[in-house]
């Protein structure tokens, strides 16, 4: 059983090696990005469930339940919602 990435209610397979942003892009989900380095906050999404693992320090301001998709991966099922 491979892990799953759920975004706005739609399930996609999750590649645990790639960042969540790269995962979304490889599934042709249109998401915003600017710096891809954790400081601009453009790729911010809402975390519904799951455990993101940051590979670099997320510098943008994160409220409770926010996740910065450009600089984290997930090892297991994760559910997100986009800000729209």
């Amino acid at each position: 059983m491979s892990a799953k990435l759920t975004v706005d209610g739609i399930e996609y397979p999750l590649n645990t090696e790639k960042t969540l942003l790269e995962n979304l892009e490889s599934q042709a989900v249109k998401v915003e990005f600017h710096c891809r380095d954790g400081h601009c906050g453009a790729c911010r999404c809402l975390l519904i469930s799951g455990q993101p693992e940051y590979i670099s320090y997320p510098m943008a301001y994160l409220r409770d339940g926010d996740v910065l998709t450009c600089c984290c991966t997930a090892k297991d099922d994760i559910k997100l919602a986009t800000y729209r």
Binding site: F33, H34, C35, D37, A42
Partner: peptide
Amino acid sequence: VKSNPIPWINHWLVSDN
């Protein structure tokens, strides 16, 4: 406005670190 009218701009804004 729901989507970026000039999506190509994002590639210029990548930090390239």
